[in-house]
Every structure is written in C-alpha cells, then in structure tokens.
C-alpha cells in the first residue's frame, strides 16, 4: 500500500483553513494560560488554607 501525497487546490485551501484554526487555538491556549496566571496572582496567597496547614502563611491575628 502506498501513500501518495495528493496536492490540489482543494487541499491547499483546506490546509490554509486547518492552519488558521490551529493557530487560533494555539493563541487561545496561550491567552488562557496568561489570564490564569494573572488571575491567580491577583487572588493572593491561598496555600495557608490548603489541605496541610501552614501556619507561617496565616496572618498573625487569624492564627491566634
């Protein structure tokens, strides 16, 4: 069985469409990553309330 590469106008246009959609999705993923990083940083430290208590991260008045 041979896999001969077929090239035609239809394939070129389909490639352009797939490439465009792929680049948009890649850009969307990068944007989501950046937005998530910004939002998490804005939320402040949350480790003090994680599964394992870390008293060093809890404000003084709250830990008393």
């Amino acid at each position: 069985m041979s896999f001969e590469k077929v090239t035609s106008d239809v394939h070129e246009k389909r490639f352009s469409r797939n490439m465009g959609v792929g680049l948009c999705l890649a850009a969307f993923i990068v944007l989501m990553f950046g937005l998530s990083a910004v939002k998490i940083r804005q939320a402040g430290a949350t480790e003090g309330f994680d599964h394992v208590a870390r008293p060093a991260l809890i404000p003084a008045e709250e830990s008393q």
Binding site: D9, V10, K13, R14, S16, R17, M19, G20, V21
Partner: peptide, 17 residues
C-alpha cells in the same frame, strides 16, 4: 469530502475571517 462533493469551492480561512 462529505457534504462538499457537489460544491466547487472549498472555503479558505480568510473566507471565514
């Protein structure tokens, strides 16, 4: 080519844009 056999045109990304 399901759904496009009878259509002579294959849209490009720019067409959607």
């Amino acid at each position: 080519n399901i759904g496009r056999e009878d259509g002579p045109y294959e849209p490009k990304f720019g067409d959607f844009f």
